[in-house]
Design a protein around this nucleic acid. Structure first.
Length: 504
RNA sequence: GCCCUCGUAGCUCAGUGGAUAGAGCAUUUGCUUGCGGAGCAAAGGGCCGUGUGUUCGAAUCACACCGAGGGCGCCA
């Protein structure tokens, strides 16, 4: 015990505590850090890609963030329902169909499906920008869709499927899973019914007779003097559905289908006002669960120079190209570092490292911070990045592989612990708390931070403390410590949806 | 005009009201007859945007200002 600068530092026997931590990790194994089941259901809606558009790096953030949050919240003891809400109808789809029917009729997508679909979409926008009179044709097509013109519906179904097939491929590569798929096309009719109800209850004002839309004056309904929630347009003047129309129905649908403690929407920050408006409107309409719907805003992914990625303008980095590039780069490095691996192992390592390197920066940044994508840092596998953490896992595995026996039983410590041992144990012991914190704050950042620190403290320990060549009693404890560190790293990486390879 | 977010090392970012504000990259220099060097160690580099408060104590909380980005009735 000592006093330093007004602080009272207490030192206690870390030996007993250390044994307890390590024993606990090894007893619980892959469940180390998992919290007791609460019996409460949480829905995490994420990814939400639009069909008929390219899937680019910007979409990766919601997909990765949502997947990881779902894993973390589940590990924190909740029953998680992963939802994906496909944007398969709306002005963008109609524009695409218009362009396709008029200029590309009969064409089928090439191998590079999303690029082609994205190109057709930006081409549609270019044509419309050049000749605004064509907008009339697009509006006409929208009303034909609205009347379910069989020809339009058939074309829509076929082309929509091209996108969906591609999404499924991407999710498989990224190891992302969904329990429930929604699409906004299926919310159009229910949404319109919700709006009818709002009009009847006097919550929404129908201005269609004077050529206006159907709106909800939220601030007025709440009696607010200053503008805050403003006005939400819930139906177009031509009675076609808007995103807002559909979101009302979706929220209601979620809570009637599931008994949700919380319904989380992982959607980018630009839609913050929209969600506040939708949730507030539902609250005004008397849905008591409305406050349990929560928008989790995250900032966008930009290109260097703060260039926004927009399918419309074609300023995008396609996900597929990036994944391929990252893996082949990783492959090249494996060849260099570890040529003795089998072809199959090299492929596995390249996948683990390449994908990990892409996912990590999306998860390691605060949700409110913009991610700037550039090729150089995306393909940099050194330093504060997933491969560093994976490498620590590999090193631990390497020691355990060489111990030529099964892991020793728990032993009391009778040697003086090295400072690096204490630090490693301390970091391992913090994992369960960080899981709880990450789940509560919806921040994957806490897990990436801890994973990095685990790797760092393990590497310190690795350098400082011989394990296999240590005295027998010390050796037994250190082997168990190595196994515990490896297990904790693996558990943390699993929550981040990053593979923990055995070799690399 | 109203609302939201961000501002910490040259760059990218951590930092739960508490000790001398920390990592990575980049720069410079060391470490392998040790369990894998995708590693480790060291050096330089900071009016924590500015100011005023609250507090025993502020990068952290409040307010104002400056700078950057985003949103705001028929896009999603």
């Amino acid at each position: 015990m000592e006093g330093v600068k007004g602080y009272l530092n207490l030192y206690f026997s870390s030996a007993e505590y250390s044994v307890r931590v390590v024993d606990n990790v090894l007893d619980e194994g892959e469940n180390y850090g998992r919290h007791a089941a609460r019996g409460e259901q949480v829905m995490v809606e994420f990814s939400n890609p639009n069909t008929h558009k390219a899937f680019h790096v910007g979409h990766l953030r919601s997909a990765i963030l949502g997947e990881s949050l779902a894993r973390i919240i589940e590990f924190a003891g909740y029953d998680v329902v992963r939802a994906n809400y496909i944007g398969d109808m709306g002005l963008h789809v109609i524009k695409w169909l218009w362009n396709y029917a008029k200029f590309h009729q009969g064409e089928v997508p090439p191998a590079d499906t999303t690029k082609w679909m994205g190109d057709l979409y930006s081409e549609a926008n270019q044509r419309l920008d050049k000749d605004p009179e064509l907008e009339a044709e697009v509006r006409d097509l929208y009303s034909r869709w609205d009347q379910r013109d069989p020809e339009i519906v058939a074309l829509w179904e076929e082309t929509r499927q091209w996108s969906v097939n591609h999404f499924e491929k991407i999710y498989q590569v990224l190891d992302i899973q969904f329990d429930r798929w929604y699409s906004n096309s299926e919310m159009e009719q229910p949404g319109k019914q919700v709006v009818e109800g709002l009009i009847e209850e006097g919550i929404a004002e129908d201005e269609r007779s004077t050529g206006g839309p159907v709106i909800v004056r939220i601030d007025e309904k709440l009696g607010l003097q200053k503008e805050k929630y403003r006005v939400l347009v819930v139906l177009r003047s031509d009675s076609t559905a808007l995103y807002a129309t559909e979101d009302l129905a979706l929220a209601i649908g979620k809570f009637s289908e599931y008994d949700l403690h919380t319904s989380i929407y992982v959607v980018d920050v630009r839609q913050s006002l929209h969600f506040e408006q939708v949730f507030k409107t539902l609250e005004i309409a008397g849905y008591d669960w409305a406050p349990r719907s929560q928008h989790l805003p995250y900032e966008v992914v930009n290109l260097p120079g703060n260039v926004v990625m927009a399918s419309r303008d074609g300023t995008i980095v396609l996900l597929e190209g990036l994944i391929d590039e990252s893996q082949s780069r990783a492959r090249q490095i494996v060849e260099e570092k570890n040529p003795s691996l089998s072809e199959e192992q090299k492929t596995d390592v390249a996948r683990a490292v390449g994908l990990g390197a892409l996912k990590y920066p999306m998860l390691a940044r605060d949700n409110a911070k913009i991610v700037t994508f550039d090729w150089e840092s995306a393909l940099d596998f050194n330093g504060q990045a997933a491969p560093y953490i994976q490498y620590a896992h590999v090193r631990a595995n390497s020691i355990l592989r060489r111990m030529e026996a099964s892991l020793p039983e728990s032993v009391p410590i009778d040697h003086e612990l090295d400072p690096t041992e204490i630090e490693l144990i301390d970091t391992i012991s913090r994992f369960p708390n960080e899981v709880a914190r990450a789940a509560e704050e919806y921040k994957t950042l806490h897990i990436t931070n801890l994973a990095f620190e685990l790797a760092r403290t393990f590497n310190d320990f690795y350098k400082q403390c011989p394990v296999l060549k240590a005295d027998p009693d010390v050796r037994d404890y250190r082997l168990r410590l190595v196994a515990a560190a490896q297990q904790t790293i693996a558990n943390a990486l699993r929550l981040l949806s990053i593979e923990a390879p055995e070799v690399m």
